[in-house]
Amino acid sequence: MKNLNRRNFLKTAAAAGLAISALDSKTVKGADKTLSEDRIGMLIDTANCVGCRHCEWACRVAHNLPTNDLDTYSNTEVFKEYRRPDSHSLTVINEFENEKNPLLPIHVKTQCMHCERPACVSACIVGAFTKHPDGTVTWDTDKCIGCRYCMVACQFQIPTFDYDKAIDPQIRKCDLCFDRRKSGKVPACVDICPNEAIIYGKRSDLLKIAKDRIKRKPDVYIKHIYGEYEVGGTSVLYIAGKNFTELKMPPLGTNPAPGISESIQHGVFAYFVPPVTLYALLGLIMWITKRGKVDELKENNDIQEDEKGENS
């Protein structure tokens, strides 16, 4: 054990770590490149939403989910309780108090945010989730094994599960009407909104519109576009006249959730270079130590032989 002492071991380990982290940054950037410059999104202007809940109805119809008649959606009683999306309603509207004008409560639509770096895509062990270049996050029901890792991974708690179904329960969430849009239509909720409180367009355009509105009406909006930087940016953006935490939007940092875990996972196995390097390194260490041992043995033998010679 001449060459490999504790210090040398730490040195080599650090070098290997560096090599891995260098590879990490490459893989992370590669993931961003798959997104299109013209990727789409939705801007939800809560100041224009009147809480008619027509989007909830349109969403159900567009996704073939059971629904009551549209007229029943004018019922404002449902606002008394805070609601979350479930397997039958992929989007819901909640009502919040407006201190600036009590007669105009704030309505906030909740649905999948279609993150730029989605945690669900990262967490799915069978690769059923896909982040499309246009920004949409969809999933493949046929691949899904129902592990519900996506539900745990999502910071917005969006994917839902058919808990009430014993046979073939499914994961569901907003897919930005992926199939509808193929035929040139806008998402169902965008289409039906009477006030166009949900604006559908290029994410870059939406950011410009949001900034313009905040600038033009500083008494109506606070200076924050929710989703511009949250968890590395989301396709769905919000502007409002009240702090977003008060509207029950989770206060999230700007780091994408899959960041650390994904970079380690992807880094470790990227192109099999790190495992190969690791094994090569271990082999090298083994070879060096073995050689050292052989030398030692040889030396020992030589000494023994010498001693023998001297004795004889």
Binding site: K185, V186, D191, E196, I199, Y200, G201, I209
Partner: peptide
């Protein structure tokens, strides 16, 4: 029309 190029002005 809701599906249009310039979405800065409401339809």
């Amino acid at each position: 029309t809701r599906s249009r190029e310039d979405v800065s002005v409401p339809d």
